[in-house]
């Protein structure tokens, strides 16, 4: 099924405020899939549906106060992000979403370099060295997915939204409530981890 393009915010918001069922349907068709992806990237597969449902109720409740400082889509995604983060806090998950930034500042492990900052363990030559080759290998796909799943939640959210879902950084930072510079650090760290995992995988082949 193709992606569904919703009516403009100017058309949709007044109708949603009137509790128009057609508008509800249009909004759900347009945004629910993305909401699920975002929720998954923060809370995992098991409760992502529940979080997205909760977020819809929160959207409806907050809509009369929506000041339109961002698009409806970004605003909805921010609500999903908040619902997901509060769910994580509620479930006292081991990873603290709010402090993941500090963890993210650690760069490529220092044992790759000598004391002068030159490569001690240079990158290996990849036998699968095109994007197509990476995604067509089941084992490498598995490796990439496992690495994404093992990332701290904020890193996973940023890389999923930026590289897999294709959102721009400004929207992502608004959605996740992080500064632009922290967003870039998180993205850098996450991408480096995925590259590193692919490198390790190809080294042992």
């Amino acid at each position: 099924m193709a992606n569904y393009n919703p009516p403009s915010d100017d058309e949709l918001i007044p109708q949603l405020l009137k509790n128009d069922e057609i508008a509800y349907r249009q909004a759900v068709r347009a945004y629910h899939g993305m909401m699920i992806h975002l929720a998954r990237s923060i809370v995992g597969d098991a409760i992502a549906d529940e979080v997205a449902q909760e977020a819809w109720v929160a959207v409806l409740r907050a809509l009369p106060k929506f000041e339109r400082r961002s698009s409806l889509k970004t605003w909805i995604m921010r609500i999903v992000s908040n619902c997901a983060k509060s769910r994580l806090r509620h479930e006292s998950r081991t990873v603290n979403y709010g402090t993941a930034i500090e963890e993210a500042t650690a760069m490529l492990s220092s044992n790759h370099f000598d004391e002068h900052g030159h490569w001690a363990t240079p990158p290996s030559v990849w036998h699968a060295d095109t994007p197509e080759a990476l995604v067509s290998s089941t084992e490498l796909q598995h490796c990439i997915n496992n690495t994404l799943d093992s990332l701290p939640p904020l890193q996973k959210s940023v890389i999923t939204l930026r590289d897999i879902q294709g959102l721009d950084m400004e929207s992502i930072c608004k959605v996740l409530d992080v500064s632009e510079s922290n967003g870039r650090v998180l993205l850098h760290r996450a991408r480096s981890q995925v590259r590193e995992a692919i490198d390790q995988h190809q080294r042992v082949q």
């Binding site: 193709a2 569904y4 993305m34 990476l134 879902q165 991408r191 995925v194 692919i198």
Partner: peptide, 15 residues
Amino acid sequence: ITILALRKMKKEHSV
């Protein structure tokens, strides 16, 4: 290459 591979993993948003 890693970034381009991630882009190819985009999933449809259809509901």
